[in-house]
Design a protein around this nucleic acid. Structure first.
Lengths: 205, 205
DNA sequence: ACCTGAACACCGTTCAAGT
DNA sequence: ACCTGAACACCGTTCAAGT
């Protein structure tokens, strides 16, 4: 009565899909114990397999971190997509900014490894590279849309997208680092004010 | 003939100052082998002492990383000070931006640990906290100066400083991460364009 | 084809012992 | 007061062996 295995990607020895289970364990460990807990031995333990088992699915520690980071970029993009499907125009842009920062602050350990040294310049992690650069593409696409509606001025959309992403990324990192306390502003105020500055500039009008 | 030791802080058993030697070894290791090489055992080896010796000077690995990061913030601030002593006004502001990004790109491993998870929210590393927040203070002071000269419009200087620092910090990280390739711009162009956008905004005039 | 158990090198950390 | 040597727990990684 046993069905023939139909797909090599959705069956395994002890698990339906050990690779997936290991990535999920990684996300769990990240949230509960922080970045240092994302170890190959740790995810193996959490998934109930031997310490060597993950090596069937990940070449090394880097590859595990890369797979978890990739999942993180998917979740981040999902959070931004939800917003643009609800709000449009400048309201949508501000909503995306808030969603971006909120994602980082709610998933500090995940957010850090997504941009961590280990996983970066990933010629050997093409999937991660794709999901990562999709974020820049998403922001850029939004800016081009707003340019068409004349809600944003003409100019290099790529440069604008990079400037906006840089500012949001930097803001998340600085808040996570506790470096924004000196500004005397709450996180909500910081997002509000910094996106306003990015929109209208610091120069006198 | 042996002189009495006159200061407890500037003498040691095997070294003139082992603590300083360990921090310098740490900076070396960071540049030559990357963030993962900044270990207590590694700096001990590089300084020619036993693996347990660093514990006389650093409570734990965190404390070592904190001391190295602190040195990094000092070097960063020094690089910015050099610029403002040469250039003033908007030229000085752009010069500081370039100096900031250049420092990050020339010291990638050091820059990363300065903002790394291990060393962050450092209630127990007060010196690091001081040198770190000095960066925000420096940027803010420059903005207030430009406001006095009416080269920057009125508004919350703290929010402007945070926005500017966020953007520069994010830009450094994204370039280090190789995430800006999609923009089609060189690093120099990115600094130029993003600071211009921060100055004049993305909204139509 | 996928997983286990044992092994090795490396790291953080502690502690008794040396000068 | 400062440093060494040995020890323990933990991690990444490899490899022969099991089903």
């Amino acid at each position: 009565m046993a069905a023939k295995p139909r797909s090599k990607s959705t069956r395994a020895y002890h698990h339906g899909d050990l690779k997936d289970a290991l990535v999920r364990s990684g996300l769990d460990l990240l949230h509960t114990e922080g970045p240092a807990a994302l170890t190959l031995r740790g995810v193996a333990r959490a998934a109930g397999v031997s310490q060597a088992a993950p090596y069937r699915h990940f070449a090394d520690h880097r590859a595990l971190v890369g797979a978890v980071a990739e999942q993180g970029f998917r979740l981040l993009q999902q959070a931004m997509i939800v917003v643009v499907q609800r709000d449009t125009g400048r309201k949508g842009l501000k909503g995306v900014a808030i969603a971006y920062v909120t994602f980082g602050l709610e998933n500090p350990a995940l957010y850090r490894i997504m941009f961590g040294a280990e996983v970066v310049r990933e010629a050997d992690l093409p999937e991660l590279h794709k999901t990562g650069s999709a974020v820049l593409g998403f922001v850029r696409h939004g800016i081009e849309e707003l340019q068409r509606q004349s809600l944003i001025g003409p100019g290099d959309a790529g440069a604008m997208a990079t400037a906006l992403w840089s500012m949001l990324h930097g803001l998340v990192m600085l808040v996570l680092d506790g470096q924004t306390a000196g500004s005397g502003l709450s996180v909500a105020e910081l997002v509000e004010e910094t996106t306003r500055i990015m929109m209208f500039g610091m120069a006198p009008r």
